[in-house]
C-alpha cells in the first residue's frame, strides 16, 4: 500500500495540509479519531495526528500538521506525488455526536485542525455551532473559511490583535457561557494550557466540556502506556480510552509536565536535521 500525497498546501509558516491516499482509513474514520504516521517506513518517529477530514470516494484523508521537530520537518519536505512511510488507523474512540442543542467549539492554533471534523459532525447532527478560533497572530490562523461556512456564529481572537479581537479564547468563551440559555456542550482543542483554562471557564457555568488530548504516544493501540493521563484521579490511556475526555476531570498540570519529557532530545534531532538539510540545500535549494 502506498500512502501517496495527492495534494499539499501550506496554511501558515509552519502549518501544512496534505491529502494522503489511505482508502481504508478514509472509509473507517469518524470525527475525533487520529492516525499514526511516519515519513519513514522503517525508523523515524511515529507521529499521532488527528484526522482533519476525509474523502472516502477518493480514498484520501486530510492531515494538518505543524513543523515542530525532525519528523514533521521531514513530512513538510514531502510534496505531491511523494508518499508517507506509513499511515496506521483510524485510532481512538470517535467523538460522541448527537443533537445536544448548542455546541461551542473552541480551537487554538494547530488544534483548530482536529476541531474541524467534530464541529462539522455536530452541525450535521443539528446542533447550533458557535465557533471560537484563536491564534497568536493573523498569519497563524488556519481554516477560517471552513469554519465560517459551517458555524452559526464565528468568533476570532488573536493574541496580538492583528485579526479579530485582541483576546485569548477564554474571554469570548465566558461571554458565550453567560448567555441564556447557556450552551449545552463545549469542545476545546488546542495547546494543553488553553484547554486547561477553557475547562476552568466552562466549569464555573457547569457546561459539559470535551477536550481532545494529543499526548506523547508510541503505538497508539494501548500497548505502551506512554500516553497515560490522569482523569478523575484514575490513569487513562489517550489512545484507547480517548483521545476525548471530560475536560473537567483531566489533570492538565500533570499532562503538561509529561508533554515536556523529550523536549531537549527532540530539539537535538531537529537541529541535526536542519543542519543536514541546509547543507543539502546548498545544492538543491531546499530550505526550511
Amino acid at each position: 500500500m502506498s500512502f501517496k500525497i495527492l495534494s499539499k498546501r501550506q496554511l501558515s509558516e509552519n502549518v501544512f495540509q496534505v491529502d494522503v491516499q489511505a482508502p481504508l482509513v478514509a472509509r473507517a474514520r469518524k470525527a475525533g479519531q487520529f492516525v499514526i504516521v511516519s515519513p519513514d517506513p522503517d525508523a523515524g518517529e511515529r507521529i499521532p495526528l488527528t484526522i482533519a477530514g476525509a474523502n472516502s470516494a477518493q480514498g484520501t484523508i486530510r492531515l494538518i500538521f505543524q513543523r515542530v521537530g525532525k519528523a514533521t520537518a521531514q513530512m513538510a519536505e514531502l510534496n505531491e506525488g511523494d508518499a508517507l512511510g506509513y499511515v496506521a488507523g483510524p485510532l481512538g474512540r470517535p467523538t460522541h455526536i448527537e443533537n445536544f442543542g448548542t455546541a461551542v467549539c473552541v480551537g487554538g492554533g494547530i488544534g483548530i485542525a482536529p476541531l474541524l471534523p467534530i464541529a462539522a459532525a455536530l452541525k450535521e447532527a443539528g446542533n447550533t455551532v458557535v465557533s471560537i478560533l484563536g491564534a497568536r497572530t493573523k498569519e497563524l490562523l488556519i481554516l477560517e473559511e471552513e469554519f465560517r461556512t459551517l458555524s452559526d456564529e464565528l468568533i476570532i481572537v488573536t493574541d496580538d490583535g492583528s485579526y479579530g479581537r485582541k483576546a485569548v479564547v477564554t474571554e469570548p468563551l465566558e461571554t458565550v457561557c453567560r448567555r441564556s440559555p447557556k450552551p449545552n456542550l463545549a469542545i476545546a482543542i488546542g495547546p494543553t494550557i488553553m484547554m486547561k483554562f477553557c475547562c476552568e471557564t466552562t466549569k464555573k457555568f457547569e457546561v459539559p466540556t470535551q477536550v481532545s488530548l494529543n499526548t506523547i504516544m508510541v503505538d497508539g493501540t494501548g500497548m505502551c502506556g506512554g500516553c497515560r493521563v490522569e482523569v478523575g484521579g484514575k490513569t487513562k490511556f489517550v489512545c484507547v480510552d480517548g483521545p476525548e475526555f471530560d475536560g473537567h476531570q483531566v489533570n492538565f498540570d500533570l499532562m503538561m509536565k509529561r508533554m515536556s519529557a523529550y523536549k531537549a532530545l527532540e530539539q537535538k534531532a531537529y537541529e541535526a536535521f536542519r543542519e543536514h538539510v541546509c547543507k543539502i540545500g546548498l545544492h538543491h535549494k531546499t530550505t526550511i
Binding site: T221, G222, M223, C224, G225, G226, V229, T235, F237, R258
Partner: peptide, 22 residues
C-alpha cells in the same frame, strides 16, 4: 495482552516513569 499495568502509586505520571512495553 498489550495494556501495561501500573502500580497505582503516587508519582507514576512523572517524566521518567515508563512501562516496560514503552
Amino acid at each position: 495482552a498489550g495494556l501495561p499495568k501500573f502500580m497505582n502509586i503516587e508519582g507514576e505520571h512523572l517524566v521518567g516513569v515508563y512501562s516496560a512495553n514503552e
